[in-house]
Design a protein around this nucleic acid. Structure first.
Lengths: 154, 154
DNA sequence: ATAATTGTGTACCATTATAGTACTATTTAA
DNA sequence: TTAAATAGTACTATAATGGTACACAATTAT
């Protein structure tokens, strides 16, 4: 299913809530109640986002979290990396040393191409895009969405 | 990490081995020994690929597996779907009914756009592409790899 | 016919990853 | 000093994954 973890999904929900009024400080409690995600889980996610420098935290009373940068500068790829580590479809795309399968793996290079394509796709979408309303389903973009990864091979 | 399961990874290895000489029949045993993947695991994968109609199986002595279609007609997306079900980054992209989070989810539509973009990317790569040698790293395609998903929003 | 070969299907187990929780420490505003 | 808030660590339960085992069915060769 090529799935994202739930935590990552939550993270995008949390971040896009925060992006809707950035500059504002939000406490974990507040975020939890607005999004409906349990507080401990929210805290865990926020901590990861702080570590990844996507959020800035302020401790103490009146503390909370704010976006570290403008929504336009926070990419979906960065969010995913923050929660799940490097974006890579296959193991061998991460560690340069490759897998232990003896034969048959001339494919590795091709996987890393696909990887990079997807990574770039995610890199090109920001929080600012995410909070934008969705375009109607019938217009011209349906052609644009045909992404020519295969063209890399020609 | 946005990862593919190991089985899916194996599947691409297996399929690209078979694609190198299609028309030929390959027994599970043979595939196992060539790829270095344990036989029971290979069988499991092959079975899934047969169910997904990517392979054709022949029982009995001299039996084995062959590709159901030409390598050019088997997409990476199809392989992933065969092993992991529909390609979707988030839960809500699959079931139309959406998730149970009360607020903050105007994002859903945007996720499904991203999903579709990635799906199309994977759809555009075939087995035939995978067995092709990788292009050298310095040439012109480095520009092409910048996939404008964000352009969907503009 | 019979035996050998090969795929099919089901069920199972061990390991790991994930999601979620609890508790304590630390920081800061009032 | 107290209350409000984050930080860090550790833990637990559940689910997914990867891998294995075994009985069954089909086909070919002898």
């Amino acid at each position: 299913m090529l799935r994202l973890s739930k935590l990552t999904d939550y993270a995008t929900v949390i971040l896009s809530f925060m992006a809707r009024d950035d500059t504002q400080m939000h406490a974990a409690m507040e975020i939890a109640s607005v999004t409906g995600i349990a507080l401990p889980t929210v805290s865990k996610i926020l901590k990861l986002l702080v570590n990844a420098k996507l959020l800035i935290s302020t401790r103490g009373a009146k503390g909370g979290y704010t976006l570290a940068r403008a929504p336009e500068k926070i990419t979906v790829a960065a969010v995913i990396s923050a929660l799940e580590g490097p974006i890579a479809l296959t193991e061998c795309s991460i560690s340069q040393q490759g897998c232990e399968q003896a034969a048959g793996c001339d494919i590795r290079g091709n996987w890393s191409l696909i990887n990079q394509a997807i990574h770039n796709a995610l890199e090109s979408v920001t929080l600012a895009d995410m909070i934008r309303p969705v375009l109607s389903q019938d217009s011209a973009w349906k052609q644009e969405i045909l992404i020519p990864v295969a063209s890399l091979y020609r």
